[in-house]
Design a protein around this nucleic acid. Structure first.
Lengths: 249, 249
DNA sequence: CGATAGTTTGATATCCTTCAAAACCTGTGG
DNA sequence: CCACAGGTTTTGAAGGATATCAAACTATCG
């Protein structure tokens, strides 16, 4: 967690070289504090700069006309929150902070220049947007085909692995700063029912809650409870064998 | 529909230059016929080549251990079916054909070389994966927050617009080769309930079915019925004003 | 014409929502 | 240190949307 979280994340895909690292570190300054609840991208915005999340939790969501909100993704340190909005030139959903956070704003021009001159970095950024897409697809499966208990449990498995990769877990537990209402908008249920499902998970000894922390007594048991398949998170270092070796280095 | 569908699609984002076009056209040969039901990517595969869909319908899906299937996306002409699987080096879901189809296989090496040498084309491909991500996110909203009737109606709005962009609609109608069972796996309902929702849409004069075609008597009415917001499909040509102009051309 | 897949309808079961209220926290001011 | 206010969590009871089960009907194709 001392390393720049974007470096940690992209390093999972390519061996970044000195100049790539320098670029990323330059992007990460100056660090800016944002308060819980700050919306920094609203649907329809045409962002001029890209927000890199360095610390704290954010989320993407859409609000329907009837006021219902669906959370599309949780944003964790290392995530470039609105890269897609910049590339597509127009945001199709809102992004806001769930906790106090620190971010850095990178000018879009800088990123696009880097894209044109650093193919290795470009591929790494592209890769990271594809991982996000994979997460979105698994979210579809979760909402479409899993029962309430499993839906909630699946989300905790995902968060566990993403946070662990960032070094933000310790001893089978992590900081979980979200209210049950926020959770309910992520798993598409009522807060009341989320509450009951959490109780069930507690009673099955799959999860424990203290202060604002979740503990997972036995990660393996939780994962087998939901039949969790982590491959969509692309956590294993890319395999270097095969045709691609010459493209890296 | 005479133009190469990938050119049509990417042309929506950048003005492709002669060499980009040449490359894409070269990718599109030789054209290969695939029969309905062919699976060409299974979860865990590490594809060496990328499949470009030229004609017909495909779909992405995941199958859970209990046998339930969730369709993640429909693939239409111009879609590079497994680009992400190639970039990520491992497929996290299956891809198969819903109709007879014609495709072209591009070697991954060729694509990656193009990526390193044609920044404009790279950005266009990246853009197209981001549009797919936007579609996936809207799918999340659809499954999470819309009632059955609206869920089905929303899907037809999306298909209408995507097909129209490709010139595959005529006169308020299009070829819809899917069974209600396939549809039910896309909208996460039982086939029985899909059937009832289709009846309701028919009774409301929002949709009509003949042979294997759907007709939408009044697209505007269908869209306002679901409160459909097309912005996630990124159909408007990218706005050329602002900081970005120098990056294009 | 029969076989097979897809569509349609009905009756009953269930998961989740909705509505309502109590209990519990957390911070704040007196 | 207590009282109080606002948000969050928890519990209960009843209703509704969708699933499940079962079967008839229809279309298509050899």
């Amino acid at each position: 967690m001392n390393e720049n979280p974007l470096v940690t994340k992209l390093g999972n895909f390519v061996d970044l070289q000195a100049d790539d690292l320098q670029l990323i570190r330059a992007w990460s300054l100056p660090a800016i504090r944002l308060a819980t609840g700050t919306t920094f991208i609203a649907e329809g915005d045409r962002p001029e700069r890209i927000c890199l999340l360095l610390e704290g939790w954010g989320y993407r969501y859409k609000t329907l006309r009837d006021g219902n909100r669906q959370i599309l993704a949780f944003l964790l340190p290392g995530d470039m929150c609105d890269l897609h909005a910049f590339i597509l030139s127009k945001a199709d959903h809102d992004i806001a902070m769930l906790t106090d956070a620190t971010v850095a704003f990178v000018s879009g021009k800088d990123v696009m220049q880097a894209v044109d001159s650093h193919p290795r970095l470009t591929r790494a950024l592209w890769w990271s947007t594809l991982v996000d897409e994979g997460i979105a697809r698994e979210w579809i499966v979760n909402l479409g085909r899993r029962r309430a208990v499993h839906r909630v449990a699946h989300l905790f498995c995902e968060l566990w692995l993403r946070l662990r990769m960032l070094g933000m877990t310790s001893d089978g537990e992590f900081l979980f700063p979200l209210s049950q209402e926020v959770l309910s908008d992520a798993v598409a249920m009522t807060p009341v029912h989320v509450n009951r499902m959490l109780r069930e998970l507690r009673e099955r000894n799959l999860l424990e809650f203290r202060d604002k922390h979740v503990a997972i007594p036995d990660v393996g048991r939780l994962m087998s409870f939901v039949d969790f398949d982590p491959s969509y998170l692309q956590l294993e270092r890319r395999d270097l064998s095969g045709d691609l070796r010459h493209l890296r280095s």
